[in-house]
Design a protein around this nucleic acid. Sequence first.
RNA 1: GCGAAAGUGGCGGAACUGGCAGACGCGCCGGAUUUAGGAUCCGGUAGCCGCAGGGCUAUGGGGGUUCGAAUCCCCCCUUUCGCACCA
Length: 900
Amino acid sequence: MVVSSVLSPDGYAIMNAVAASPSPRLSAANRPNDFHVHPARRGAVGDTVRRADAQMASPVSDYTPQAIEKKWQRRWTEQRVFEVAEDPARPKFYCLVMFAYPSGHAHVGHVRNYMIGDVVARMKRLRGFHVMHPFGWDSFGLPAENAAIEHHVHPRTWTLDNIAHMKGQLQRLGISYAWEREIATCLPEYYRWNQWIFLKMFERGLAYRRRSTVNWCPSCQTVLANEQVVDGQCWRCASDVDARALEQWFLRITEYAEQLLDGIERLSDWPEKVLTMQRNWIGRSEGAQVRFPLAGAQGEAIEVFTTRIDTIFGGTFVLLAPEHELVDRMAEASEDPGGFRARARRFLAQDRTGRLTGEIEKEGFDTGRVATNPFTGESVPVWVANFVLGEYGTGAVMGVPAHDQRDLEFARKYDLPVRVVIQPDDGSSPLSAEALSEAYAGPGRLVDSGEFSGLSWQAALAKMTEAAAARGIGQGTVQYRLRDWGISRQRYWGTPIPIIHCQACGLVPVPYEDLPVELPDVTAFSGQGDSPLAQVPEFVNTTCPSCGGAARRETDTMDTFVDSSWYFYRYCDPNNTELPFDPDAVRYWAPVDFYSGGVEHAILHLIYSRFFCKVLHDLGLVEHDEPFSRLLTQGMVLKGGAVMSKSKGNVVDPDDMMATYGADTLRLYETFVAPPEKEIEWADTGLEGSFRFLGRVWRLVEPLAARLAQAPPIESVETLDDGERAMRRKTHGTIKRVSTDVYPRVHLNTAVSALMELVNELYVFCDTAGCGPGAPATGTAGRIQTWAVLREAIEALVLMLSPFTPHLAEELWERLGHADGLTAARWPEFDPAVAKAETLVIPVQVNGKVRARLTVGADSDDAALEAQALADRQVASHLAGKTVTKVVVARGRLVSIVAK
RNA sequence: GCGAAAGUGGCGGAACUGGCAGACGCGCCGGAUUUAGGAUCCGGUAGCCGCAGGGCUAUGGGGGUUCGAAUCCCCCCUUUCGCACCA
């Protein structure tokens, strides 16, 4: 699906939106003219050049980025240089940046994101890889719907206009995207495959329905997203928000909990930080489920989950979550069912808001029922407690106040018994239940625990779990913090869930051939009442595909995280009308080799994508089992200490920067200012420095370009003088550094600084060698090889600069006589023989302090170095009156002398 | 509270496997050029002492390992991020 060729259902031509002219700010008519900062070129390369300048009287072009950038962007588009198709003969590289939510305008924070990907993609391309670098739009979601409600603009119009504008911005930045693979998740050509995958999951029992609570505004009669709840109140009408239980759709991600956890071990190229966050999110804990028989209820028992079965003899009460299914039945059987329920309900409400605000006082009430601790045989009271969670474990816990802080606080508050069953065995004084002010959760030995007394707590864990199983009162089990993924949204701007509700047949999947279930064209968005889709009778009323009777469509739409959980596969085959993607195309491109994006997606997006990958793997559609080989989480761009956002009004627009300095300067600055992972505080002042550098490159290369294009190749090393060999050494040293800094290290800032060093050295070289534009072909030194050396250095410079500043590089490359552009060029080859130093400067330490530096031949042996160091005048003066006890020679690096 | 990452000049940052701390850039100072400003080119720029050769002190603080520590180990402080009644 190519966005620019698609007509949306309401006839809105996306093509028009996408092809809209660039921002008026940049149109030729009103572009600021005062940009011209180089009225004349003076003294670029020292005196020689100035003299030459005067002789030649040739007009010298200034660096005028806007003209250059426009020229090359047009050429790249016309020649479709970034388009790629599968080619098994060439090594592939899939370079991905997180796609964008089309919020309206890109800001310099987005630019930084996309620049990291573009530098890597462009460099890999030059290194001979077949690079796919796609882009697209995560274009469903709440903001479009909010815009519809507030400004009466259709979400589709709002979204597509934003896409058009942002696409223009990205194109003006010269990012090397394979635009022919562009996708937008809000188009039926995309979202039908969300529906397809959903149906596959439904067939496998991975998509299911159950009751779950949502935020409900009683006044607007509508469901609210968390972000629409402000201080517990509706964002629109300020009514207090309620909890309401609805039947909702879930994806059974918990089925993959173990696989998702195991996979983390193999993600060696992900940041440790992200892996830790994912591990915690999955939250595996091993423990046991134990049944506490409920008195007065034939055969019924309360099942509790515990990670500390070793403390069970100290379990003096049982706590139920307010949402526990027993609570309702206990209320029914109690003397005052109404009061009972009211107390439980109060906790439920409190729990929701408590989660949003932070702290809640621990509270509970006695159900009046008792259960039996199956290990002690004692009767223990059953309470309902607000801090026990229905969704974790079994929704019930045993209260062990001596060894759990929350239980202790609870027991003290309600005067429940406390019993110490673990005594520390590190020699500290024994614990007593009465004096206990803090629960003891540390190691120790069991006491007052019947036959288990005397065991270490770890031994007891195993023994007692075994015992529970043997006696039929429990078993060892594993719990996850991870919960199933609720994907139902009572929203318009999302993927309709392809299910039909039939009175007779129940939940009936929409047949595959009827996909997509398209969004109806709702025009009025009030933000009130039922799900918007439920208000469209033509959409809702349908016939059952199974029995042909009257039926209703599901009116929930999908969470937008579904869209983003597999989009990277769609890029591999964006026009497929038979399947979400051709497995062969994905086999060639996937997994993603390099994925870069914001750390804010470290958990949800990345874990959902990993989940989808594993499901698609089980469906036989993909072969690999992890979607992203390498992940880089890039730092945010702050302004005034805050993330840029429209609401904060601290957005820096890249168009403003481009108008003043050009895209290349902005690109260079954002990669040079800090390492990619680090967050940065935006400051305009640094841009000047980057602009200055590019001007310096231009003034170095452009006047010499025509001459260099005629320069011969380097003949032989013997013909070069010291300065020329030194220049080549610098050139190849820089090639080595930049080659590894850009990838795999992705230390883009140090790559740029290496290039700056090269330019500095080139200026000095030109000055001393007399290589001005007016110099004779043989150079002032009469050496034709000088030009050969210079050509090698400057071509390497231009090539290595090209991932960062592609427009400038293309222009200079062309002027250097390469008519076929950088697309046909190859990354410069590093030659270790050339880079090898002829002499080394070796520091000499005496008792750990540098006292001298020796200039020695690169192949001096250790004995010679040691002798030379000891003979040094400075060293000798520091050794006077002392005895040398030890000399360490680190070959090629340093001599360290120890003396007393 | 738990987990993770990070603390280096006036500022952004560099130092790859333990081997010359401060690359590169910003800013600032000086010089050249210029009628002037701007731009450009050249030089200087961690602190302290010294006329100088040179010396001393410095990578959040304190200990340790080592011939040698920004880097490794222990303790502490600070900051940022993530999760948080998870049984």
